[in-house]
Write a protein that binds this DNA or RNA. Structure first.
Lengths: 235, 235
DNA sequence: CAGTGGTCTAGACCACGGT
DNA sequence: CCGTGGTCTAGACCACTGG
């Protein structure tokens, strides 16, 4: 029952065929697949080719692989929804809207207790506290409240955040950091409602992100979006 | 300048070293990296090993690769936040909480106009409309409002949704579908507040998902979470 | 056209983990 | 113990694309 054709079989072909067999219930949930060696023999290709195909499917959660036990069809595949987290300016420009940015407030403060706990700072320290607004076609789009740990990023004290947003500035300054992200719904208080052009009590979508570079806390940011904002993706 | 050690170098070692050099600005933004052959020579390993390391980094967006041009450090890496979308039962069990499920309502209805537009149904059709509650340790966790297109999934009419949630049932019945997901913040009306044990006017986090299988609309679901819910991830 | 990444192969050794 | 996946290798050919 070899899958034969005029061309040599690539890992993408193997991948497709395996997915097809799982979908067609040739290999139902919790079934043990043939071993890599057997599949390679059936498909007439090298084991490395089968391996790459199965490894990708395992990374995506479609199958589970364990040494000795073998490869099993995952009964409840956990799908990964991927959100591309980009700079607000690009999001807005991607909507074909005009982007405008404004710095509302800039203050050097003692890092608040709750924030130190949140990002793992044992010692008291100073933070640069920034309030910013991002507009799309002159309508409020996102309100940004940010803390930058000046011990980690001393150059932030000299940066001109009235010209370029702290997010873009930080990306250029400290690329490739680690981050924790969370999404929540919040209720607009008077200040938020004013910034975002809505009424107090409105439900708003918020994204929070804490960022580290080489183990040191860099920044924490709360990005609250205008009423009605939706974050979309597909898989 | 070979990286030598007592052990043979694996692709993970190569990967780490490349990331380290990018972070240390040995290879700054927009730099062209040495070719795979050169790196393999420097690291003293096979080209396939270098290839796998670089391929992973390219998949993650850290570098861009093109034939002939070579491998370049990405100046504005678009980071992907990955959310593992799993069955709510697993989410709750993962919190070491007791999971309880209850079917609130089940109705066969005409597919509403707005929903047909949302999922691309030209013809009038019937849908199974379900209201469900998911509890963690007997506390309301998620309210689920779901529509199942019975033309696509006729067997849904015979399923016993008082025993197993529609999400789990659908995953078993129609695995590996495509989906669009969106996140929003909503304000609790009287009914939602009652289901989720909060007050009307509260801000709630909602996830919506539309699902297709082989191009045919399968289901649309609104999952509204208890007040204070956070969806977290890291990268 | 020539250099780069993309992929495949056949073989090998290793590490894990059921039996 | 020993079968399975995990990985590495050395070599090869191919596909794309910049110059």
């Amino acid at each position: 029952m070899t899958i034969s054709g005029t061309k040599r079989l690539g890992f993408q072909d193997v991948r497709r065929e395996v997915v097809a067999r799982i979908q067609a219930q040739v290999w139902p949930s919790n079934t043990l697949l043939p071993s890599e060696v057997e599949l390679a023999r059936e498909f007439g290709c090298a084991r490395a080719t089968v391996n790459r195909a199965l490894r990708e499917l395992a990374d995506e959660g479609l199958i589970d692989r364990k040494r000795k036990r073998g490869t099993m069809v995952n009964p409840t595949p956990a799908r990964m929804a991927k959100f591309e987290i980009e700079v607000v300016r690009k999001t807005i420009e991607g909507m074909n809207a005009d982007y405008r940015y404004s710095l509302v407030q800039r203050q050097l403060i003692d890092t608040p207790e709750w924030l130190r706990g949140r990002i793992g700072l044992d010692q008291p320290s100073k933070s640069l506290h920034l309030l910013c607004m991002h507009y799309a076609n002159s309508l409020p789009f996102q309100f940004e409240e940010r803390w930058i740990v000046v011990d980690t990023v001393p150059s932030a004290l000299d940066a001109d955040f009235s010209a370029v947003g702290p997010n873009e500035w930080l990306i250029a300054e400290m690329p490739f950091s680690n981050a924790e992200i969370s999404f929540t719904a919040v209720t607009a208080d008077a200040a938020l409602a004013d910034f975002l052009g809505t009424e107090p009590g409105a439900s708003l979508f918020r994204m929070e992100r804490a960022t580290w570079f080489q183990g040191n806390p860099v920044t924490f940011v709360r990005m609250t979006f205008h009423a009605g904002y939706r974050m979309n993706t597909r898989y």
